[in-house]
């Protein structure tokens, strides 16, 4: 059992190369195995210190898995490993054209209720969004592989807006579905 998880980065923990494309056929079984080996149940008769260490490891493993699982946190983590500052809240400069599109998209979501079939409309929006996200993810992968890190960071920032729009669509879909019940 590896006791030095804390000295590894999240990719090393799951023994996969640090990159945007992750082989979850390798990660998932290892994740389950690691979860098992640090499960609190296995440490009931251990010392306090061992127990504490197990909890810390378990939480690290979770954090590592959650980070690799979703494209945006994974991309941000990759940039962080390269020493890029990724979440400066005060940096509001963005491609104006892109922001304009986001604004229009959010307006369309907000006004979806006036549609004849709002749920159907939301579904359409969601597939457009998923497609856009995939395009950005592919773009990130290319830029990151080419070490064009500043451009790659810009792409992740765009993805964050789309994720927010997706959350709004999800919330609204849920609301509408509940109203129909």
């Amino acid at each position: 059992m590896a006791d030095d998880l804390f000295s590894r980065n999240f990719f090393e923990i799951f023994q996969v190369p640090a990159g945007f494309v992750v082989d979850f056929d390798k990660v998932d079984p290892l994740y389950r195995e690691l979860q098992k080996s640090y499960h609190p149940d296995r440490f009931v008769s251990s010392t306090d210190q061992e127990r504490r260490l197990a909890i810390q490891n378990a939480s690290l493993i979770n954090q590592a898995y959650q980070t690799l699982k979703e494209p945006v946190p994974r991309a941000q983590y990759l940039l962080k490993l390269k020493g890029m500052d990724i979440d400066a809240e005060t940096d509001t400069t963005m491609d104006a054209e892109f922001l304009m599109q986001q604004m229009e998209f959010r307006e369309a979501i907000a006004e979806v209720r006036s549609n004849a079939d709002p749920l159907d409309e939301l579904d359409t929006m969601l597939s457009v969004l998923k497609n856009d996200l995939q395009i950005l993810a592919d773009k990130f992968n290319t830029l990151y592989t080419e070490s064009a890190l500043a451009d790659a960071r810009e792409v992740v920032r765009k993805m964050q807006f789309l994720i927010k729009a997706r959350k709004e669509i999800d919330t609204l879909s849920e609301e509408l579905e509940n109203e129909l019940l």
């Binding site: 304009m100 604004m103 994720i163």
Partner: peptide, 13 residues
């Protein structure tokens, strides 16, 4: 003026 905050996904015009 169009600005946005990636961290929270807010957009402001």
């Amino acid at each position: 003026g169009m600005v946005g905050a990636p961290a929270c996904g807010d957009v402001m015009r």
